[in-house]
Amino acid sequence: MDRRDTASHCGRSSASARGQGRGRGWRGREEGRGRGRGAAPSPPPTSYSTSSFPAAGSATAADTTGGDAPPIVGSCPDMCPARERAQRERLRDLALFERVGGDPARTSTSLAVKKFEIVHDFIFDRTRSVRQDLSMQNIVNEQAIHIYEDVRLASSYQDSDASSMCYLNMEQLMKCLLSLFDMYDAIHKNNSQSSKEAEYYSFYVLLHLGCKIPKMVDSLSLWYGHLPASIVRSKEMIFARSILRCYHIGNFKRFFCTIAAEATDLQLRLLEPFLNEARVRALMYFNHSGYKLQRHPLTHLSEILMIEELELEALCRLCGLEISENEDTKAFAPKQASFCIPGSIPQSNGIYISRESQR
């Protein structure tokens, strides 16, 4: 080999080395410019034997996915992250039970928890996706029923005073109930039955309380006729029908006493948005009945309606009732023309049972 051949060989080797060093992006730009000038495409690269090299990524996979990999460990020991806790203190966005000494701008690691609305929205969206997957795949079995009962329906209803959110939550809850009822009918053909069937049928009856949702298409009397006798005679269904009857006839003392004594956790959870509506309706009856000189003490009314006296006072003022105080006793006189049913009723804190009523 003469010097020209040697120089030519060295030039090709150095050019090849420079091309390999510049990488794939550089080669792509050079090929693009060559094609743009009408040059012939470059020949394919020479294939090299890779038998002496290990497979790509084999060493990395062995190092990172071995059996001795440490488990994942949580890094936040608090119920509420420190950054969110500091932000909520600065914005005075602390719940009542998260405050230290009642200060809305001060909390602690043992009191502060992750804000419920954020967590609930996360669970709400994903459980809705689970329901959609079950519906699209037409999965009907005991596991699907368990998912609807213990996961989806338990998180369907969200605390919200906004009418749009309340409507969406109720719409999702009704869709879940209708899908669940279809599953119940399907498993009945196989002589099977869910242990929670009566309780979830009672939810449909309880949803007829108040005015937060539109009226159902069929009347309840016709709907009862399509139910099995064992469901209609169950204690859960008897409870729901009794609550609905007491609400419509105005027997609010029995209404709240029955809820406090017999409601399950999920039934009480479903009834909470309607409790203050029932209390406002009871205040309307108290205001229209009696004589002007016969005042209604708030202490007595709070025991009947099972609500704290301060919360009842705020509800009375929201309805336009004038409260008078005499010897540490607050009361309102009936026949007040200023009474009106508010358009937006605040969310109830549940059922309050005083020590006097327990005695």
Rank of each mutant, 00 (worst) to 15 (best):
F332D: 01
V232N: 11
D185G: 02
L227C: 07
A261L: 09
T65S: 12
A260G: 03
I187S: 03
K189M: 12
P45M: 07
R254I: 04
L91P: 01
H226N: 12
Y285S: 13
M216C: 08
M170Y: 09
T127E: 09
Y200P: 04
S14W: 00
L305C: 11
S129L: 15
H188R: 15
R295Q: 14
Y201G: 00
A333D: 02
S155C: 12
R35F: 01
T329R: 04
R27H: 11
H120F: 11
V113Q: 10
R245F: 06
K235F: 08
Q20A: 13
E171L: 14
F203W: 05
I304C: 07
N191M: 11
G19Y: 06
H9E: 11
E89F: 02
R295E: 14
V205A: 15
N191C: 11
K330V: 02
R126E: 15
L283S: 02
E325G: 02
T107A: 07
G25K: 14
L177V: 02
I351T: 06
R295H: 13
I231Y: 03
E277F: 03
I187Q: 01
Q20W: 00
A229Q: 14
F124N: 10
L91N: 03
A15M: 09
T258I: 09
I345T: 06
R254F: 01
P71D: 10
P41F: 03
Y352P: 10
A17Y: 04
S135W: 02
Y291V: 03
Y201D: 01
V232L: 15
A86L: 09
G34P: 02
I123P: 00
S179F: 05
L180G: 01
K175G: 12
A17H: 07
S195C: 10
G320W: 02
D328I: 01
E149N: 09
S219D: 12
D5H: 06
L293M: 10
S47Q: 13
S195N: 08
I259C: 01
Q347W: 02
L178N: 14
C166F: 05
N287D: 13
H296N: 14
D133M: 12
A278K: 00
T65N: 15
A144H: 01
R29P: 03
P81N: 07
R281S: 14
K212L: 15
P228F: 06
K235Q: 15
P81I: 01
I147G: 00
F124D: 06
T6D: 08
D103W: 07
C319K: 04
K292H: 08
T50F: 06
G32V: 02
T6P: 00
E236C: 10
S230K: 13
K292I: 11
L94G: 01
L180N: 02
S338W: 06
D218N: 13
A198G: 07
Q347K: 06
A331C: 09
I139L: 15
F332C: 08
I341W: 03
F252Y: 15
R233G: 08
